[in-house]
Write a protein that binds this DNA or RNA. Structure first.
Length: 448
RNA sequence: GCCCCCAUCGUCUAGUGGCCUAGGACACCACCCUUUCAAGGUGGCGGCACGGGUUCGAAUCCCGUUGGGGGUGCCA
């Protein structure tokens, strides 16, 4: 999954680097071992490729792990850190007892002079008082009272580095001059400044770009919003339009360009962090769609055809072709069998609706509700086999065998009784679209 | 709670003290074009959160209020 917000930040960074002839390094921040998957990293690369953002170099942050530890130890030798064996629990109790309400760690171990031992984390000793100036090209300058900054951990109890340390180290190593990231990182900046100073380095130029938020004004979340770039790609948005739309979220080309629709080249000539807005932006799919339509219309017919067929193959047909082939008698059957995967909504076959749904609405409703509940479970892996099990179980709870249980789901989702195997189809269709279609069928079934 | 951030049409934005009767884009509405639907054209609806300052003059600067958001992890 590659987050659209990440894509926008990446774009701004790329634009800046390309404009000023810098080097674009794609550093994969993988310091948390528990949340690393090779496929995720691969997805990031493929997303960059799709967007057309190239990189000069790339490496996983874990490559520098030894250097991170060394740096931490050096910091320790210089008296900038101390070891800590507090558990979150103990900390909480202590703070409750003393009714301390300031957030973060209470510096309990600060003067205990603990030595290194397994399970002991290494904390950075933040000065007790003083102010620190945080300068940001997008947000301006703020004086921060350092007493509000907690002594933060830079090495876990198992000796592994945290990203604050790893980033500060690698940024120096890579000669990073500008750090631009999402505004949610704003409050990490002070810590990083402190860390870099302790390491004896100057700070870079900071640029915290506004967050992208949903209709409710909250930051886009994987759970509630459609945030995966690949999903937009699979729905037929083209990368140029996506890139251009993303850029308008917080930035607009200077007035001499007169048009918010601008190519990557044009944006590269014009982009500056100073021009980025400081307030968060709502992601508006309708405007994206409008941009997308404009871009499609501007293509040559040849390019349009090429892109459309490529999309059809790669996102739909390729993934299910053998299953279609088994059932096909003539070539157009291929498309008749996948049309429900292509259309925003399935075309409802009346016969199918009558014979499956309308015959016994309460039973259909019960089954669809059971299926819907099962599919909505975030723990359910969205794979054909897991979906089969879930559907089987949902049917069993109503005393239905799988062949009966699957029928209403199939009609709700595909609009027809016949077609390619259901669970492979659901997997392709995705959780969001499946749930939406089941919901729509339920609306239609329920008495008004 | 504490720290921090933000505040121009429903949404994205232009605006950096007079060019603002606040401009553009998406969405919406109407009309035109049109065998349909789009596209296109024309027009319309609609906004500086509020209250105080500063100034000859404030959307623009300052303060406060209100509202929204982020952080508050041995995640990134």
């Amino acid at each position: 999954m590659f987050h659209v917000g990440g894509a926008r930040t990446a774009l701004f960074n790329w634009l800046f680097v390309r404009r000023h002839g810098g080097t674009f390094v794609l550093r994969i921040e993988d310091t948390d071992n528990t949340r690393n998957h090779p496929e995720w990293t691969d997805m990031i690369y493929r997303s960059f490729e799709w967007l057309g953002l190239d990189w000069d170099d790339t490496y996983p942050q874990s490559r520098n792990l030894d250097a991170h530890r060394e740096t931490a130890l050096k910091l320790h030798a210089d008296g900038h850190t101390y070891y800590c064996d507090c558990t979150p629990d103990a900390l909480q109790k202590r703070k409750a007892a003393a009714s301390i309400k300031t957030p973060g760690y209470d510096s309990f171990c600060s003067d205990r002079d603990l030595s290194a031992a397994p399970g002991r984390a290494l904390r950075f000793r933040v000065p007790e008082q003083g102010t620190l100036t945080r300068a940001d090209v997008i947000r301006g300058t703020t004086d921060i009272d350092v007493s509000t900054i907690e002594d933060f951990v830079i090495l876990r109890g198992d000796g592994s580095p945290l990203y604050l340390l790893a980033n500060a180290h690698d940024d120096v190593l890579d000669g990073i001059t500008h750090v631009s990231r999402s505004a949610e990182h704003l409050s990490n900046t002070e810590k990083q400044i402190l860390l870099r100073r302790a390491m004896g380095h100057q700070e870079p130029v900071w640029a915290h770009v506004p967050m992208i938020v949903n209709e409710k004004g909250k930051k886009l979340s994987k759970r509630h919003d459609k945030v995966a770039l690949e999903d937009y790609r699979d729905e037929g948005y083209i990368s140029e339009a996506m890139l251009n739309y993303l850029a308008t979220l917080g930035w607009s080309p200077p007035s001499e360009y007169a048009d918010e629709q601008a190519s990557l080249d044009t944006m590269t000539q014009a982009f500056a962090f100073e021009d980025v807005t400081s307030s968060s932006a709502q992601f508006d799919v309708k405007k994206l769609a409008s941009f997308n339509g404009d871009y499609i219309r501007r293509m040559s017919t040849e390019a349009y055809l090429e892109r459309s067929f490529t999309w059809l193959r790669t996102t739909v047909v390729d993934r299910i072709a053998p299953l279609l082939q088994e059932r096909a008698e003539r070539l157009p059957d291929t498309f008749a069998m996948v049309d429900f995967l292509v259309h925003a909504d399935p075309v409802m076959d009346l016969d199918s609706w009558q014979s499956v749904m309308a015959k016994d609405p309460p039973a259909s409703i019960a089954m669809l509700e059971a299926a819907s509940a099962a599919y909505a479970d975030a723990d359910l892996a969205w794979t054909a086999s897991a979906l089969k099990e879930a559907t089987e179980a949902a049917g069993a709870s109503l005393g239905l065998k799988l062949n009966k249980a699957q029928a209403p789901v199939r009609v709700a989702v595909a609009g027809r009784r016949v077609g390619p195997p259901l669970f492979e189809s659901l997997e392709l269709l995705g959780r969001m679209r499946t749930l939406a279609r089941v919901e729509r069928a339920l609306d239609r079934l329920r008495p008004a």
